[in-house]
Amino acid sequence: MAATSFQRILVALDGSDCSFRALDFACHIAKQYPGCTLVLVHVIDQRALETARMVHLQPMVEEIVRTLHAAGESLLAEAEAVPKRHQVSATTHLEQGIIAQRLLACAKEQGCDLIVIGSHGRTGLQRVLLGSVAHAVAQLAPEMVLIVREGAAASAGA
């Protein structure tokens, strides 16, 4: 059996609880695959910045970008501590762009074989089956995709 199934796992992080559950799940998998590395990615949503530009907040955009970068860095620092606790190696990547698009590009650039993502992130409707980002990733990724569900913690405990 090929032992190479999970060598590089991309974990999409947006700070939501669901994304941290996805991170836990990824650590759990990585521990069973010696040499497996987690690729932790946070994408700053370009669309939010475009909106700011459109409504003539251009002078503020730079400041917003700075703030979002700082927030992204601290999120990734917080996330990085999780695999460390599990003695799993990880790299962090702060990106900017259309979220799903950047996640997919990053998975390709980093040679990932699995993408672990929460079903619902920070934006969007909770009642849809899959959030827009998870949906786009599940549709378009050539890699395997593991979707950790909103409410999965509750059902796992049941």
Binding site: S119, L130, A141, M144, I147, R149, G151, A152, A154
Partner: peptide, 13 residues
């Protein structure tokens, strides 16, 4: 299946 359960799902292409 996504609609009927909350269990994590690993999708293979």
């Amino acid at each position: 299946v996504l609609a009927t359960t909350d269990v994590p799902i690993l999708l293979v292409r």
